[in-house]
Design a protein around this nucleic acid. Structure first.
Lengths: 242, 242
DNA sequence: GCCGATTTGTCCGTATGTATC
DNA sequence: CGATACATACGGACAAATCGG
């Protein structure tokens, strides 16, 4: 449910573009036309369009108009600039998914863990290893560290479903933003075992390290996602700034 | 030179945050206060702040305020959500850089190339292989394909400097946005040779494939950047959307 | 629990600037 | 040159969330 006018306009325009209502490189109706179509103010419409720009759907040209540059993307890929759980991503791509919890334990952050994760020394932590399957193929091995005080009551059973559903739904926590760093690292024995990799084939993998903050500005999650290199695909739209 | 009020406010706030004027997790002055400070309208200030949000510098909380969550980043990394040439990126990180042109040729897109790059069949193309050095270490091997009609007069000499400077400065082309896809691929003999890699060590590398559009909505560049895995690092800030 | 003050979020209308045709 | 298009900026109104008394 869109909870604001600009968002419903954004969604409608996005839908129309995806439905091929405008040819590739064709100009969309002008701002004034769209304002009349949606019966909204100029600011509201511009806000919707600016989100389409950052999605890479259109480009605006002063004095000319707004051009459709949307081209459908072929393959499975992880969304960029947006926080999405594995489950959400799988649903979006219409695939079957499953999560297996390999390890669930509680620990206290020592110097080494603190340096690695950014959690305060002495902080109580849930540490999980989870294996994500897409269409019954093991693709991602996650090392999750959650600050216990923010994720109280987390269990192995919950972790087999969606942890984010639990945090947002049951604990009423708001998840705000996340800093992610992508690197390429050597595979470990654990990776090799669970992701069914062969060192002869690939000896390294894509690693996404993320630091996630909640609405109170507390970094409550540190996660290292280790992806099978042959299935890893990350996409983004970059915008040139003056 | 900031060419707008909101941008100069954005830059000033960014500078103040980077200069540690506000403690980590501290609230910034309220909107009303900042409006008086900068003597601007509410919309203008909010626009500046919203850019800081998408930069991951602050988070806004309805009813509470705007919290500083900026933490300086330690290492060299490539900017995200922004198109940046190799040279710009090196300058930003205060490193010495050099570009070596391994190959410069012209060709016509056939079916195979068209399928790979998205250029129309029969399109005339400049094809370049370029090796980028940072602090005299070969880090990136680029395969660049430029649509000839958009990059007329490109030479090997220009390509040893900044191609973007030439396109934007001399040809007055505006570069607007770019779609990038990150994957992990096997290293090739060319990679091994020029990036001084050892297959025993790493047998794959980070590959960034990008499709870049100009202000006329023409996809004029297709580039495959092959990065040394041990130096590759990509960073972004993701925002959770309702 | 209520109320009022503060703070951010959404939306509107208008005016002016600048680029394109 | 005028008409059209997007870009920037201002000011005002109300909603929603938070916090303190």
């Amino acid at each position: 449910m869109p909870k604001s006018i600009y968002e419903s306009i954004y969604r409608d325009l996005k839908r129309r573009i995806e439905a091929d209502e405008f040819a590739y490189r064709e100009l969309l109706p002008s701002e004034n036309t769209l304002i009349q179509t949606y019966n909204c103010s100029r600011n509201t419409l511009r806000r919707a369009v600016s989100r389409l720009v950052s999605d890479g759907y259109v480009q605006t040209m002063q004095g000319k108009g707004v051009r459709n540059i949307y081209q459908p993307v072929e393959q499975t890929s992880f969304a960029i600039g947006e926080i999405e759980s594995f489950r959400e991503s799988a649903l979006r791509n219409g695939q079957s998914y499953r999560t297996q919890v390999l390890l669930f334990m509680e620990l206290t952050a020592d110097e080494a863990l603190s340096a690695k994760t950014g959690f305060p020394v002495g902080g109580e932590i849930y540490y999980l290893q989870r294996l994500h399957f897409l269409d019954e193929k093991p693709l991602i091995l996650n090392h999750n560290y959650f600050l216990k005080e923010c994720a109280r009551g987390l269990t192995k059973e919950i972790a087999e479903g969606s942890i984010y559903d639990y945090l947002e739904g049951t604990l009423r926590m708001s998840i705000v933003n996340s800093r992610r760093i992508m690197t390429v690292e050597k595979i470990t024995e654990i990776d090799e075992k669970y992701l069914e990799l062969n060192v002869e084939d690939y000896n390294c993998m894509a690693v996404v390290t993320s630091y996630t903050y909640n609405g109170d500005g507390v970094m409550f999650e540190f996660t290292q996602s280790r992806h099978r290199p042959d299935y890893f695909r990350f996409q983004e739209v970059a915008v040139r700034k003056g």
